[in-house]
């Protein structure tokens, strides 16, 4: 009886432990590019961040989640970005990907920041 209780307890906990290790971006679905914006239209253009829906999803898959402090200290803030929508746990979210290979996803009042150190191929003209 006690052993059965331990097994049930383990099974109840295990999925939580397992999902805790799953990268956030793996759970993103329906990633769609919707728009482009630049604060310096002559220097930072659509060609600097010309990603398809699939590539935008790929960006988040390859990226690591970082704090806003890490983003500020170690990455360049690009003046142009693409933006769009995705779903996370069935909830609608907004995202941005900047030309400097950084990004963010906002779901309600929660924002995650992303940086990709291995995404050069996604940003090439």
């Amino acid at each position: 009886m006690e052993i059965r209780a331990v097994i049930f307890g383990f099974l109840a906990i295990f999925p939580v432990a397992c999902t805790a290790d799953t990268p956030l971006s793996v759970k993103f679905e329906d990633v769609y590019v919707q728009d482009f914006h630049s604060d310096e239209p002559k220097r930072c253009t659509t060609a600097d961040v010309e990603l398809s829906h699939k590539q935008a999803h790929e960006f988040f898959k390859r990226s690591k989640v970082v704090t806003s402090n890490t983003l500020h200290d170690h990455y360049e803030y690009a003046p142009c970005y693409i933006e769009g929508t995705l779903k996370y746990q069935s909830k609608p979210c907004d995202w941005k990907i900047r030309a400097g290979a950084t990004g963010s996803v906002t779901c309600g009042d929660k924002t995650w920041y992303f940086a990709c150190d291995d995404c050069d191929d996604l940003f090439k003209k």
Binding site: D48, G100, K124
Partner: peptide
């Protein structure tokens, strides 16, 4: 200035 933004930087 003709380069892509990341390369410009």
């Amino acid at each position: 200035l003709a380069m892509r933004w990341a390369q410009q930087v």
